[in-house]
Design a binder for these strands. Structure first.
Lengths: 132, 132
DNA sequence: TTATACCCGACACTTAAAGTCGTATTTATG
DNA sequence: CATAAATACGACTTTAAGTGTCGGGTATAA
């Protein structure tokens, strides 16, 4: 449990880098990939997925690259992590909710309380808490 | 990120089950494995590792099984999770601390703050918050 | 002595993350 | 309008971690 995936790390690094630029500056995948020693192809896909959810904006053609949406303070960290890694939860039953042995399970309730505490923290924080 | 391993779930289920028994009652691996549909061999190993760190006490021979240490309120959830899953941290640099590109990394500090918040929650809670 | 329970290392299987490759699309520029 | 530079994307391979299996070993009550 409890570790960001590389994709998530790459995304946060890239977003912070993009955020440090002025609104009109365009940054290429290669620039970021070089500066932080991130495999180019992987970073490409990460940035593509960020573009897909409109967190960053692609600019095609020569001298192209990406621009970031400047205000990321309206995206909670929880939501962002779910974008990057899929649905979050301490156990499957908080995600799919079709655990075959829910009847027998004796720890669902206490774990749900822990789950909620974690969720609260991550929901109160925003992406810009990391990138700004 | 963010999901208990099966081993951890099995351990918590078993511990809660053991905790519900009186101090003198002995519970076998098979009883738990049957009741919660947990593969016997896996559960065996989980219980063995709990015995190794003295959280439960093995009783050998026929009519043997396990007894739990009744007071688990002195073991924090954080410590317990590290027993089950190894060192915890949102990123490797909070575990090994030999990340080759620490110099370049632009997100270590903000992530460390999140890491600390999570750690605080899990350190304040104890195993008996789940098993009792 | 035997049956029953825990102990444990070595191995196989499964799955998800990580990384690679080839190709298509968009567009600024000479 | 041809070209080069950038993003877009699906299919594939590799890697690592978690999950599960197997075979034998140890302790002990009866």
């Amino acid at each position: 449990m409890f570790k960001f995936t590389r994709r998530t790390e790459y995304a946060l690094i890239a977003m912070r880098h993009l955020q440090s630029k002025s609104m009109s500056e365009i940054t290429t995948t290669k620039e970021i990939s070089d500066q932080y020693a991130i495999p180019f192809e992987i970073l490409s896909k990460v940035l593509q997925s960020l573009a897909k959810v409109k967190i960053i904006k692609p600019v095609y053609g020569p001298n192209g690259g990406y621009i970031i949406k400047q205000n990321l303070s309206n995206i909670s960290l929880w939501d962002f992590l779910e974008i990057m890694e899929g649905p979050l939860g301490l156990a499957d039953c908080f995600i799919d909710s079709d655990c075959t042995q829910l009847d027998n399970c004796n720890i669902r309730t206490p774990i749900q309380q822990i789950n909620n505490k974690m969720k609260t923290i991550l929901t109160k924080m925003t992406v810009s808490d990391v990138t700004l």
